[in-house]
């Protein structure tokens, strides 16, 4: 474990307006170190997605600070935040969010294309990362021609092709069967072995506990406890 790649301190954030306004985060602090796979667990409405959105620089908190790779995001305008995301953060979504009209290779290339990478370099990188996730033979396949597990692997490839420091995954196994879920988590755990990268996974799925270095529990907008992956696994086994 090395440097802190993502650090959030005392985050407060409200959602909604008027009578419907609720405090989604009530002073959350969290940091991710390189080489770490952290699970963020909590019931629905606990603030997981809001926290993920803020950590992913998709939202700015009402108060508190977020630093990505040491850079504070508070003063950044939307374009600067987009630049930070494309250079430092990779996303994996529960529903994959692949582009249905692009094949697997082009879906992955997108992450490099938005950075202005040359097409040839991006193609080679996309092919390499597709091979890494075991889909080298499916680079010309469109999302509709891939299984759920394969689509999620393409989404992972898209998230890692830019060699970003932080990978944020929202329920990456939520739509997959056990075998595919295990395969996806194995991939994410492999990524997290790189000491310059950290992976944060939001999940409800206890089957993926063995892959975590740390498990953070959030309830009602607060971090209620943190445990090492081993502790959490023992509890799950005893139960």
């Amino acid at each position: 474990m090395t440097d802190v790649v993502l650090e959030a301190t005392d985050l407060v954030h409200h959602l909604g307006q008027g009578a419907g306004r609720v405090q989604a985060l009530k002073g959350v602090s969290l940091s991710l170190k390189g080489g770490e796979l952290v699970l963020l667990m909590g019931p629905s409405g606990s603030g997981k997605t809001t926290l993920l959105s803020i950590l992913g620089c998709l939202m700015t908190p009402d108060s508190g600070t977020v630093k990505v790779g040491g850079q504070a995001i508070a003063a950044l305008d939307p374009e600067a935040l987009a630049k930070l995301r494309r250079e430092r953060i990779g996303f994996i979504f529960q529903s994959y969010h692949l582009f249905p009209t692009l094949n697997a290779e082009d879906n992955i290339r997108l992450a490099l294309d938005v950075r202005g990478e040359r097409a040839r370099t991006a193609k080679l990188a996309a092919r390499e990362v597709l091979a890494t996730v075991g889909l080298g033979h499916k680079r010309k396949s469109f999302p509709r021609e891939l299984s759920g597990g394969e689509q999620q692997r393409v989404a992972i490839a898209r998230a890692i092709v830019g060699k970003t420091q932080v990978i944020l995954a929202d329920e990456p196994t939520g739509a997959l069967d056990t075998a595919n879920g295990q395969a996806i988590m194995t991939l994410l755990a492999d990524i997290a072995r790189d000491p310059s990268r950290a992976v944060l996974v939001v999940t409800h799925d206890p089957r993926i506990l063995p892959f975590a270095n740390r498990v953070v529990h959030i309830e009602d907008g607060r971090i209620v406890r943190e445990e090492s992956g081993g502790d959490q696994l023992k509890k799950a086994s005893n139960a």
Binding site: G56, L58, P78, E79, A82, K83, L84, R85, R86, E87, I89, G90, F91, F93, H97, F99, L110, A111, V114, R115, R158
Partner: peptide
Amino acid sequence: LTEFATLRAIGSSSRY
């Protein structure tokens, strides 16, 4: 819209 939001999320500029 979801695709454009995904593009924005993965860091594309408005100009892109």
